[in-house]
Design a protein around this nucleic acid. Structure first.
Lengths: 220, 220
DNA sequence: GTTGTCACTTGATATGTATCAAAGACTATT
DNA sequence: AATAGTCTTTGATACATATCAAGTGACAAC
C-alpha cells in the first residue's frame, strides 16, 4: 500500500503479511478484551467496529472497507478495545504488529505510513465528534452518504450509486440516531428528489443538494 | 516519559526536545491548516483542542493537561487539523516529528511509546463517541468529571476537588450540549449533594453516586 | 468604590428526536 | 409457493435538550 518502495523493500513489506483470514458475514475479526497481536488490512469485504458500554449500549465507531486498516485500538493496552464485525463475507491480511514495528524501524517510508494511518483515524474521529456534537439528523446522514460514496468512488466504484452494507440501526448507532430517525431522513431525501432509496440500494441524484445540507453556510 | 531506557538513551530522547515554548492563556499553540512539524508535550498548563466546521460551528475534541502529547492530528496531511488553545498560561516542549521518527527507529521502546500514545487517543475518541451517541446530559457530565479528577489525581492532585479550566460552554461543546444544559446538570448534582459547585471550583462529595449516574447498570 | 464585561444560573417555551406501535417489504428456509 | 424472521417504513405521542430571555454573580479596569 505505501508507495515509493524499491522492489526489495516491497518484498519485505509483503513478508509482514503473515496470513490471510476469511471472515464470514456476522463474524468477529476481533473483539474487545482479546489480546492484541496484529493489525488487519482489509482485502475484501466490509466491517463495522463498535464499542459496548458496561450496561450494554452499543456505539458503532466506524465502517471500514477494502484497503483500510483496523486494529489500532489494541496497541495502547495490548488488548483490543472494540469489536470488529464483518458486515459481509470478508478477507483480511493479518499483520503481526511486532513485525510491522520491526520493519518500520528499517524502512522510514513504512514508519511514516503507519503514523499517517493512525493520525488519519484520529482526524476521522474528530469529524465524527463534530457530527455527533453539532449536527442535526439530516446533516449527519448527508455527511455519512457523501463520505461513503467518496470512499467507494476512490475504489473505482460509482460516484452516485451505492449498496449499504449495514442496517438502519447500525447507521443510526454510528450517527447517534435511532433507526426510525435514519429511516425518516432517507424518506425525506427521497421525497425531495435528492436520492433514490430502495432498501439498501441508494442512488444519489443531487449530490450538490446533499453537500448543501451537510454544510449550509457554504452556499448561502 | 517512556520508561525502561538507559541513561544514554534517555539523554537522546531528551535531545529530541528542541525547545520550550510558552503559551499565554487564550493563545493558540497551533491552528488548523498550519504546517505540521512537531508534536508538543505539555509541561504545565491546560489546553483544549477543537475543530471548526465550514459554517463556524465549533466542536471541542479534547482537553489536555501536563504530561499529555498534542499535535498528532497533523501527521496525516502535514497540516494540523485542529486548533490547540491554552486555557491557562502554559509551557510545552516542542518535539520535531522528524526527530521523533528518526530516534524511534533506533529505540524500539520509544517507537512503541509513540504508537501507544496515538492508539490511546484513538481509544479515547471512541469513548467520546459513545458519550455523544448514547448518553444523556447527566451521564455525560458525570463521565466528564470522573475522567478529569482521575487524570488530575494521577498527577498528584486531589481525588475530590478540582478547578475547571474551561467555561460551561466549552464543557458543553465537548459533551455535545448547550451551556445551559451543562449548568443545569451541575445544579442538579449540587442539589442532590453529589458535588459542591462554586463557579469553577468543584468538590466531589459522592464519587460513587457519580459513577452510578455514569453507568447505572453496574449497580442495579 | 464604581463601572463594565463576561460567565453563569434559572425559568418558560419550542423543537428535534426518541419511543411506542403497527404494518409492509424483503430474504432465507423449507 | 408458503412461512418465518429480520429489516424497514410510517404515524402518534412523549421527552430531553435547545432556545430565548432575564437576572445574578465574579472579576478587572478605572
Amino acid at each position: 500500500m505505501p508507495a515509493g518502495f524499491s522492489v526489495d523493500e516491497m518484498k519485505r513489506v509483503d513478508e509482514v503479511v503473515e496470513k490471510r483470514r476469511r471472515i464470514k458475514q456476522g463474524e468477529l475479526l476481533f473483539s474487545s478484551g482479546e489480546t492484541f497481536t496484529s493489525l488487519y488490512a482489509i482485502r475484501t469485504g466490509f466491517f463495522k467496529t463498535c464499542v459496548t458500554s458496561a450496561d450494554g449500549r452499543e456505539q458503532v465507531t466506524g465502517f471500514q472497507m477494502a484497503g483500510e486498516i483496523i486494529g489500532m485500538d489494541g496497541i495502547v493496552s495490548d488488548r483490543h478495545n472494540c469489536n470488529a464485525v464483518a458486515l459481509e463475507d470478508a478477507e483480511v491480511c493479518e499483520m503481526p504488529f511486532a513485525s510491522v514495528e520491526e520493519l518500520s524501524r528499517e524502512l522510514p517510508g513504512l514508519q511514516r505510513h503507519v503514523h499517517k494511518i493512525m493520525s488519519r483515524e484520529i482526524v476521522r474521529e474528530n469529524s465524527v465528534m463534530m457530527l455527533l456534537g453539532n449536527m442535526r439528523a439530516e446533516e449527519r446522514l448527508a455527511a455519512f452518504l457523501l463520505n461513503l460514496v467518496q470512499r467507494l468512488h476512490a475504489r473505482g466504484l460509482s460516484q452516485s450509486e451505492l449498496v449499504l452494507r449495514m442496517t438502519r440501526e447500525e447507521i443510526g448507532s454510528y450517527l447517534g440516531l435511532k433507526l426510525e430517525t435514519v429511516s425518516r431522513a432517507f424518506s425525506k431525501f427521497s421525497e425531495e428528489g435528492i436520492i433514490e432509496v430502495k432498501q439498501r440500494h441508494v442512488k444519489i441524484i443531487a449530490p450538490e443538494a446533499l453537500k448543501k445540507i451537510f454544510n449550509p453556510q457554504t452556499y448561502f
